[in-house]
Design a binder for these strands. Structure first.
Lengths: 344, 344
DNA sequence: CTGAAAGCGCTAACAT
DNA sequence: ATGTTAGCGCTTTCAG
């Protein structure tokens, strides 16, 4: 047995067939009879043949690789849901037999996108955390690089996205607190530049308006999504002016900080001050595990990641017509952190 | 302005040069005079030219892409240092202008490695968490795919690795506890199949033996590296037999669990029972932040990830001769969790 | 049903 | 210093 390169040419030679026949047989081209297909498949198996991805890509114009573009910084934060998104994406690419190219950037995201597009190293990309108005949409459209956004944004042109139903979730959370009689609600939201943060703030306002109620002045705090920020913000709000009757948080991280602040003030979550939040299902950070258990709208950011990749692949393979726009559902789970306002 | 394909051919045509000259000029080949180089560079810039990565790869046999092969499961654990490794790797590939291909697997790691090798989609790979005897080393060597291992293993053939100095770290940690007079030390270690776990256990034994001391029977617990496991294991050891005088932990996660177990038993860390551990510098999980602050050997797993990628790239570009074997240093940081044994 | 031949876009001898 | 000419390993017309 001589160790040949195990490429198409040598396979064809060994089988006494032409390269094209072997190529077709391997890809189960209809014009190839079952018998030949089998024979070729066996020879390929025996030789340990695998097509050279680059050569195939050069010939077909496709790489079966998708890219994930993200700020390097997102891996450096002490708290991040990025891993969960990545886990979902990994599941999807494994299932669909695609490769995943990680494209971190420090500041020049546009450069990275341009490079991915023109070097043809991926068939499409996923981008995350869109701004309220996000220039990447227009860029990717002109680059003609298929893409799916994790989250929505305002854009003139249509684009594909996978997003949590933030509007409804925060409307329901706000309504829940209002139903329980809370009128002084502080909403610890995320940073204002992100579209989902804006959507949540709008939902909060909408729920109040629908009942002819006005939120507290400065009801909404636009801060980062960390335990520390949740803590600091809650401490500040507890120190100044009348005590809020409830806190609404954008993430379990923030809610943890709020719990800590309340404990520090000797206030019992639920009895003294209610807390509710949105729970993305980040590993090891479940609203259910706080004490007392935290009322939350729960989704799975992991499956959002999975859908993100699956939708992109469908788009690339034209299984789905563009744009694919998907809004993921959530459950509102009542636990112990919300109680009637002004109870004993 | 007509929108040409912006490939080498059209560039060459527009410039009135041959493809090869343009190709050379773009890569600053010495035989090309500065004037031409400039002219070409400007035209390329203007046309927005970027080489087609696949075509270049096919011609050169190189992709400027490295792969990271890992069990999908590692992204699903509630506690993992994987993100930190990934952050380091991302920094390195960004700096060296390489691409990073993520290759998750469910069970068939060998299949993934074979595929990466034969499809020629990466120039080399990084593998992690080697077993005591790891079959991947031999496989990768026969596949002739350049690789660097995060961690060491027993192997007949030489291979490149980046590893923490586990032996020395755990020898020093053990010696520290012994110096403080502790004789009943429980070592909450990792799972026995991993080589670094075995190395740590050996260091623990060595430190005892050097003083003619015998560890407790069943001194070493081979369990997973989570807070929960640390908690459960410590609870068990506290319930059965004489109370250990100190706990040594493999990770801050486990140490957190030990802290919780001690609190539950009304024991004060430091005063009643000492605790020491190894701290990989995982984001948001620093030994310094526990209360009381935890004595630990500290390293940066992030920079280990960075070295891992840098060494692989050096190997690929033959900047460094194989094998590159790097053992990373650590600091032993004394904090408040270790006190003299049998003190008031 | 199968084969011959022409690319895909680039690099790298080998000329000149 | 620049051009000519083969490929790299595969897919895909186009003929038979």
């Amino acid at each position: 047995m001589h160790q040949k390169a195990a490429d198409l040419k040598s396979l064809a030679l060994a089988l006494g067939l032409s390269q094209s026949t072997v190529s077709r047989a391997l890809r189960a081209h209809p014009a190839i009879p079952e018998a030949t297909r089998r024979r070729v498949a066996e020879a390929a198996e025996a030789a340990g043949y695998r097509p050279n991805a680059r050569a195939r890509g050069l010939a077909t114009g496709r790489t079966e690789t998708i890219g994930l573009v993200f700020p390097l910084q997102r891996l450096q934060l002490p708290e991040t849901n990025f891993v969960d998104v990545l886990a979902g994406i990994s599941t999807a690419v494994t299932a669909r037999n695609y490769n995943l190219l990680l494209a971190p950037f420090e500041d020049d995201e546009e450069g990275v996108l341009r490079k991915l597009a023109s070097s043809k190293s991926v068939d499409g990309v996923m981008i995350t955390r869109p701004l309220v108005r996000d220039p990447r949409i227009a860029l990717l459209n002109t680059l003609r690089l298929p893409f799916v956004v994790h989250g929505r944004t305002e854009a003139a042109e249509p684009f594909s996205f996978v997003d949590t139903d933030n509007d409804t979730a925060f409307e329901r959370l706000t309504n829940l607190l209002l139903d329980y009689g809370h009128r002084e609600i502080v909403f610890i939201n995320g940073l204002a530049q992100f579209r989902y943060v804006a959507a949540r703030a709008a939902a909060f306002a909408r729920a109040h308006a629908a009942r002819g109620l006005a939120p507290l002045p400065d009801a909404v705090e636009f801060v980062s999504m960390t335990e520390q920020t949740g803590f600091v913000t809650a401490m500040r709000r507890l120190a100044q002016g009348p005590r809020p009757s409830a806190f609404l948080c954008g993430s379990v991280f923030q809610a943890r900080g709020v719990y800590r602040a309340l404990a520090q003030h000797g206030l019992a979550v639920g009895r003294d001050v209610s807390v509710a939040c949105h729970d993305d299902g980040v590993r090891g950070c479940s609203a259910a595990d706080l004490v007392p258990a935290l009322t939350a709208t729960v989704t799975s950011i992991r499956s959002a990641g999975e859908r993100l990749a699956l939708d992109l692949i469908d788009l690339i393979e034209q299984i789905a017509p563009a744009p694919v726009q998907r809004i993921l559902p959530f459950d509102l789970v009542l636990r112990d952190s919300v109680a009637l306002a002004g109870a004993p």
